[in-house]
């Protein structure tokens, strides 16, 4: 909740002009008959999707040229609210002139984008995206009929976000590719969950079997696990690079270099040092040290000795190491 949620919005006020026009005067409304199909030498397809009990149902009529598989006529009828009528109208119109194989790629977001007055303002408020999510399904139904196959053969079973038609794989790939760790960035980057928001987390408009928050958590877990495994394997094979190491591996590595190259020099002068902390300060690695014994009062602690320590670590471990005495 925040200021903008305190006064309930009116969904009707958020409809684009295009949505309103199509609600009042749908352009692709109507039916085709077998006689219409015969007259044009086309195949008649009549596909239904939805039910009155869901509040929305649509019937799509296609005339398809069998020689080119091109949809030469497309009309609809609908039981539903105004947005369902408007989006069915847009969907039917978008089919015209496309090949059946291309029409099945018409997504609900494409229909919604088509209904926008300006590219950055949604055509319908989020909770009304439901009314336009039938576009994809009824087209699949029609295409399956035309091709004489089961609808499931054409369907992508792995859809997580119905509105944006995003699959689990696409979402997981995006998390990995962009190293996404929070849900807001995931929604922004992929557009999944940015419409009706049901798939973001439980408790939305519709119950889902899988939610983006879960996919994000699972993928992050998996990524963390893989990173640790990679670090362990690299270390085992002596191929570990400092930036890929875990914190424990880094401490061990720094200690190892100090033991081998630095501590013997310091001890000869009656001094010593200890590592206090290692912090990632991208792109740098800041290693905090404390001088012990004679070193703690030595004038070169902040000049020559420090450079020697830092250069050794840079050379042996990583260019981006900085050493800071505390």
């Amino acid at each position: 909740m925040a200021r903008n949620d305190l006064v309930t919005g009116n969904v009707w006020e958020q409809y684009s002009k295009k949505v309103q026009e199509r609600m009042n005067n749908p352009k692709a409304l109507g039916e085709f008959t077998q006689a219409d199909a015969d007259a044009q030498g086309a195949k008649l397809i009549v596909a239904d999707f939805g039910a009155e009990s869901c509040g929305d149902a649509v019937r799509l009529f296609w005339l398809v040229d069998p020689k080119t598989d091109t949809i030469i006529g497309s009309k609809f009828k609908s039981f539903g609210c105004g947005t369902a009528i408007a989006s069915s109208d847009a969907m039917a119109e978008l089919c015209i002139g496309r090949r059946v194989d291309d029409a099945i790629h018409i997504t609900n977001t494409e229909v919604e984008a088509f209904l926008r007055d300006d590219p950055d303002t949604p055509a319908v408020p989020p909770q009304k995206m439901h009314c336009s999510v039938m576009a994809y399904d009824v087209i699949l139904e029609a295409a399956a009929q035309y091709k004489g196959v089961e609808r499931s053969e054409l369907e992508n079973q792995d859809i997580v976000c119905e509105c944006a038609r995003m699959t689990r794989k696409e979402i997981v790939d995006a998390i990995r590719e962009h190293n996404i760790s929070d849900i807001e960035t995931l929604v922004k980057t992929t557009k999944a969950g940015s419409y009706c928001k049901s798939c973001v987390r439980p408790g939305g408009h519709e119950e889902r079997s899988v939610y983006l928050v879960d996919i994000l958590a699972q993928t992050r877990d998996k990524m963390d696990h893989e990173r640790l495994e990679d670090a362990a394997n690299a270390s085992l094979m002596g191929k570990a690079t400092f930036d890929k190491m875990t914190i424990v591996q880094r401490i061990k590595a720094v200690d190892g270099i100090i033991d081998e190259y630095i501590r013997p020099m310091l001890v000869m002068d009656g001094g010593d040092m200890e590592i206090i902390d290692i912090k990632e300060n991208m792109p740098y690695f800041d290693i905090y040290i404390r001088y012990l014994g004679a070193c703690s009062s030595c004038a070169t602690g902040s000049t020559g000795t420090l450079y020697a320590i830092e250069n050794t670590l840079k050379q042996k471990l990583d260019e981006n190491i900085r050493v800071l005495p505390v």
Binding site: V46, V58, K77
Partner: peptide
């Protein structure tokens, strides 16, 4: 506009 009302006919 309704598909369900004209169902029989369609």
């Amino acid at each position: 506009i309704s598909m369900t009302y004209a169902k029989q006919e369609a």
